[in-house]
């Protein structure tokens, strides 16, 4: 399982770097993606293949977005969400096509990073729900990447 301490050290480093290098006006979904990828990075060593493609956009505090995703039984998936707004709180959760929460208990949420872990019990469509729980900004960029093994 991912060490939160390790994640926080790495995350805080990247967040600081982003703070120094990216002015608010230039902040974008691409910046949010870099944070999502940062959350994903430790899992590569565990054999997860991280998809190059990602989803992103901007949401207001309290707003949700659903992404429909085809998952295959036999694979194991992680979804990682990030935002460049470090005071934001984000979450990501996975539901099956009936609307039942199916993520594993080691799924996590830490400030502007969140991740959901699922081992599908059936092949089919699932819903990945991303939420900006809190944010000091009117609109908050988010990005979602996923990996499988």
């Amino acid at each position: 399982m991912l060490s939160p301490h390790r994640l926080f050290n790495r995350a805080s480093f990247v967040a600081a770097l982003a703070f120094l290098l990216v002015s608010p006006a230039r902040a974008s979904v691409d910046d949010a993606q870099s944070f999502a990828l940062q959350a994903a990075e430790p899992y590569v060593k565990q054999g997860f293949q991280i998809r190059e493609d990602y989803w992103g956009g901007d949401l207001g505090a309290g707003e949700k977005k659903a992404v429909r995703q085809q998952l295959f039984k036999g694979n194991e998936y992680w979804f990682w969400m990030g935002s460049e707004i470090e005071k934001a709180t984000v979450s990501v959760h996975i539901y099956d096509s009936e609307g039942k929460l199916v993520e594993q208990p080691d799924s996590w949420q830490k400030g502007h990073f969140a991740a959901a872990h699922v081992t599908p019990t059936g092949t089919g469509s699932y819903f990945v729900i991303v939420t900006i729980e809190q944010s000091p900004e009117d609109r908050t960029h988010w990005a979602l990447v996923y990996g499988f093994r």
Binding site: F8, A15, A16, K87, A88, T89, S91, Q109, K110, G111
Partner: peptide
Amino acid sequence: VFAGLALSVQAV
């Protein structure tokens, strides 16, 4: 930034 992160940890 790290302190900000730590304070914002609050699972919903």
